[in-house]
C-alpha cells in the first residue's frame, strides 16, 4: 500500500504550501507526491516548502518529482524550498549536485522566510 510507505500532510500558511513527508520516496511512492504538487499548482499556488524531517529514504524517482515541477513553479513566480533533511536523505541530493538548483535549509523556518520574502533562485 502506497499510504503505508509514504504519508504526506499539507498545510497552507498565507500563500505558502507546506508539505510534510513521512516514510519512503521511491519509484512506488513518487506518484503520490507528484499528485500533491499537481493539486497545489492547480490551485494557483507556487510557493512550496517541503519538510523532510520524517523521510527516511529517497531514490532518483523521488528526485525526479522535484525536477518535474521546478520549472513550472519558478516560471510562475514561486519556488520549491527543501528543509529539515536527515543526513542520509541529504546525501542523495548532494551526490548529484541538487544544492546547485534547490535551496536546502536545515530549519524549515528559514525556508519559509525565504519564500515569504520572495527570495527565489
Amino acid at each position: 500500500m502506497i499510504d503505508e510507505k509514504l504519508k504526506i500532510q499539507t498545510k497552507k500558511n498565507d500563500d505558502i504550501h507546506c508539505v510534510y513527508l513521512n516514510g519512503y520516496l521511491d519509484a512506488h511512492t513518487a506518484p503520490k507526491l507528484e499528485d500533491t504538487f499537481q493539486q497545489i499548482i492547480n490551485g494557483g499556488d507556487y510557493k512550496i516548502l517541503v519538510n523532510f524531517s520524517e523521510l527516511d529514504y529517497i531514490s532518483s524517482a523521488g528526485l525526479g518529482v522535484f525536477m518535474a515541477f521546478i520549472e513550472d513553479v519558478r516560471n510562475n513566480g514561486g519556488d520549491i524550498k527543501l528543509a529539515s533533511m536527515k543526513d542520509k536523505v541529504f546525501s542523495v541530493f548532494d551526490l548529484l549536485g541538487f544544492p546547485m538548483l534547490f535551496d536546502i535549509d536545515a530549519d524549515e523556518l528559514d525556508a519559509i522566510s525565504k519564500l515569504a520574502n520572495n527570495q527565489f533562485r
Binding site: 532518483s60 525526479g64 525536477m67 520549472e71 551526490l95 548529484l96
Partner: peptide, 10 residues
C-alpha cells in the same frame, strides 16, 4: 531542467 536518467549515474 531535465527529469529522469539519474539511476545509472547513481
Amino acid at each position: 531542467l531535465k527529469r529522469g536518467g539519474l539511476g545509472i549515474k547513481i
